[in-house]
Design a protein around this nucleic acid. Structure first.
Lengths: 240, 240
DNA sequence: TAAATGAGAGAGAACGTTCTCTCTTTTTTG
DNA sequence: CAAAAAAGAGAGAACGTTCTCTCTCATTTA
């Protein structure tokens, strides 16, 4: 369920019990033990995400997370050294999810379509229920939480900067290509364009419109208008 | 300094010491005592804002606020019943500041100019230093903090809803008037337009571009392009 | 002098984390 | 292959710290 957010790791290589290999050191990496450890880590991260969405990074206590995971503190601390570490892991996973959506930009051959699609996909993904009942528990909450945390937590700030740098690069590459294809006004400042478009998109994502009754489909033309406006400014500015 | 954010209250009515009135009950409202109380409250709120910007709502402790205000806990709790109350007061003040910027929309006779101006004013105001040294301490941080808090704190959520409702109404009124003047495509869904424009603006405000080297002036054409695109879509935003 | 104000110790709860101990699984040894 | 030893996993009490908030008592003000 939260596989969506948590990055997959290459664990299913030795799928069936190669129990004979137990004396060899490879067992350390691919054996039952290791697989169980990863399962437990994921269990903890799932619980933590639920709690963080419900109560916030600071608001959720380790006991709350332990209860949610059905685990004692002693057990939990065997897998993560601190609350900080869990926060960072969750932040990174959540940010990476965004980056992955961006990676599919190149699938559209038209820059306006690409931007529109990224926006819509993003909103759709973020409004999905992470674990639970109502739409109020969507992972869009985590978006705000991560951003707030990044303002004071150095570790989270670094994680954000890393992922957002990658996202900026992806966007910039797509925009440069589009500019050369003549889809973007040649005088446009691409750096500024990327930064502001990203900020505007984030604003919409944080608002979590789907949870307020505005369906994702209704946002499609909004994103399209936005993309057209920002990518072909000559047309619009000349309007006046 | 933080008068910017804290709402003015009608205190300067009895400006010079009407000290003789101290036995009459009016003194309770306008006497030295009352004025001192307000001064102390403001001192506390200033300190709290500094701390909240530095450490976040949850991250800042009451002791930290007391130190910043140069005050003991016993003294502070004479003026505010709880940390919650301070958080709510600061949130309300910060949101009201936004609403005030919107109130000047009607000063522009052109809807695109008005939207552009509101956006620019907003960014400028939010990027101002609230109290201290670097641009990293701008009150834009509080914007994110308030939004995150509103997701779980019922009181803050109510405050946000109140102020944002007022802001929506102001925008909606301005847009309706513009629509009748023929400045906006008649098929546009104004409700959706207001909601998405506000969200996009918030996204830019939260990013606090001025603190990252992008001057407010550079954002002016961005806001203008955005406004033009969203307000004259003709073919795009025609939902409903 | 009576009321308002403030300082500061500290109560009581909650926090993140660690410690000790038990139970199970795996590895080594005879 | 069976017994012994080691390692791993987990539970839960307990630790020291920090939190918000209160209480007592001294000082200031009208």
């Amino acid at each position: 369920m939260v596989d969506d957010v948590l990055p997959k790791q290459a664990t299913n290589i030795a799928d069936d019990d190669a129990s004979d290999a137990s004396h060899c050191f490879v067992a350390k990496l691919f054996g039952k033990r290791a697989r169980n450890r990863e399962a437990q880590e994921e269990r903890i991260l799932n619980a933590a995400m639920t709690c963080f969405i419900r109560s916030g990074f600071r608001g959720a206590s380790m006991n709350e997370i332990c209860s949610e995971a059905g685990m004692s503190p002693g057990a939990l601390y065997r897998y993560f050294p601190s609350k900080e570490a869990i926060i960072e892991k969750i932040s990174a996973a959540h940010r990476q999810q965004s980056a992955e959506i961006l990676d599919r930009m190149s699938e559209s051959d038209n820059i306006v379509d690409a931007v529109t699609r990224v926006g819509v996909d993003h909103v759709r993904k973020m409004s999905l229920n992470a674990t639970g009942p109502g739409p109020r528990d969507s992972s869009a909450r985590l978006f705000v939480e991560v951003r707030a945390e990044a303002m004071r937590n150095e570790g989270v700030a670094a994680i954000c900067e890393l992922h957002e740098g990658l996202m900026r690069d992806t966007l910039l590459a797509a925009f440069s290509a589009a500019k050369e294809r003549g889809e973007i006004d040649p005088v446009t400042d691409l750096e500024l364009l990327v930064a502001t478009l990203a900020a505007m998109g984030e604003g919409i994502i944080m608002r979590n419109f789907p949870s307020q009754g505005v369906p994702v489909e209704a946002l499609e033309p909004v994103f399209r208008a936005l993309a057209e406006a920002m990518l072909r400014p000559t047309k619009t500015i000349a309007h006046k």
